[in-house]
Design a protein around this nucleic acid. Structure first.
Length: 198
DNA sequence: TATGCGATTGCCT
DNA sequence: GGCAATCGCATAG
């Protein structure tokens, strides 16, 4: 259980608080080391909620402290923590973390991972390591099998432009990628690469 | 209804 | 370092 009001603030304020927080999923516990903030309707061109409510993003419009999952690239699932008051539709994407409990279980789920620091290094990998699926979307992180444990204070952190976001939501105008400096589980920064296909 | 591309990853060269 | 895999969603017609 945690104080839900802590999350009822802007994603940019919540993101540093999530750094160092623990996300417990059954036997596996993750220490979050890297996140990205996404704002609400009409505020943030990079956010799924920018153009309003749809079936996919409706969880973002609900209470803070719930899990927003989405499917992308035809094969990957990413997870967000919904924040800001209900209706504002902003969230924080969980990009990377360190498995601090249940490493053996995480390894079994991430057979392609060569070393333990890669187990949850990257948003789609993190989801797999924790055993999260699309069906977990909407789950309340304050109670239940998926549980978020917030630290008392925000960790020291660095910021930069968001990774992988194209168009108006990318670049220096939105320096909403947050990470714990020096942590080996933080994913390498990679600017958006334009799509090319025959 | 049709079409293009994405908050990515891992294998290939 | 480059690129294929793979499908739901948003946008255009």
């Amino acid at each position: 259980m945690f104080d839900r009001s802590l999350l009822a603030r802007s994603a940019v304020e919540v993101a540093p608080l999530l750094l160092g927080a623990h996300l417990v999923s059954g036997d596996v516990t993750l220490r979050i080391t890297e996140v990205e903030a996404y704002l609400g309707v009409g505020e943030d061109p990079g956010s799924h909620s920018f153009r309003g409510k749809t079936r996919r993003n409706e969880v973002m419009f609900g209470e803070p402290g719930h899990l927003y999952t989405y499917f992308t690239y035809g094969m990957h699932v990413c997870a967000n923590v919904v924040c800001s008051p209900a209706g504002s539709a902003s969230a924080v994407l969980l990009r990377a973390g360190e498995i601090i409990e249940g490493v053996d279980v995480a390894r079994a789920r991430r057979l392609t991972s060569k070393s333990d620091v890669d187990l949850a290094r990257g948003p789609a990998r993190l989801v797999v390591a924790l055993g999260i699926t699309l069906a977990d979307g909407g789950a309340d992180l304050a109670a239940g099998p998926l549980r978020l444990e917030l630290p008392a204070e925000a960790s020291a952190h660095s910021t930069s432009a968001r990774t992988g976001v194209s168009g108006g939501g990318g670049g220096e105008a939105y320096p909403w990628r947050f990470w714990i400096p020096g942590d080996p589980t933080v994913s390498p920064y990679k600017a958006h690469t334009p799509k090319k296909r025959s």
